[in-house]
């Protein structure tokens, strides 16, 4: 397999972080689904801001980042269900799938990112539970 085709097979989480409000639903859903203690995360929110960029313009974003303990909800997705963080996301800004498919969601109008966590890369996954 060429390096390129391997990357298209990778699975990931798409985040339209333009609209992520920092509501914590993704974090807590993952903790409850995977029995993680209060100080361990399968996905962890990062807060960027607030600060003032210029008059009436502010930097204030949240971005959730999957950790090595994210297994991309393998037991759910194998049954055709959404990962729980994706399902409960209050701004509906998360999606799960093949990176190539997720890329199509980039609309060129708002802020997107795709994370391919360790479990999406076919290397060994650390059991989350």
């Amino acid at each position: 397999m060429s390096e390129n085709s391997q990357s298209t097979e990778a699975f990931g989480l798409l985040i339209n972080y333009e609209y992520c409000t920092g509501c914590h639903s993704c974090e807590v859903s993952c903790q409850m689904e995977h029995n993680l203690p209060t100080d361990r995360w399968g996905i962890k929110l990062q807060k960027i801001g607030p600060w003032q960029i210029k008059q009436d313009v502010y930097q204030y974003d949240f971005v959730p980042i999957p950790t090595d303990q994210c297994d991309l909800c393998a037991s759910r997705t194998s049954k055709g269900k959404k990962p729980l963080c994706v399902k409960h996301c209050q701004s509906l800004v998360m999606d799960y799938g093949k990176v190539n498919d997720l890329l199509k969601r980039f609309d060129g109008k708002s802020k997107f990112t795709i994370f391919v966590p360790k479990s999406g890369t076919k290397s060994e996954v650390i059991q989350v539970s």
Partner: peptide
């Protein structure tokens, strides 16, 4: 539409 806030997510 399937969304929940953290307060219901931790129901257990």
């Amino acid at each position: 539409q399937g969304r929940l806030c953290a307060r219901c997510i931790t129901l257990k």
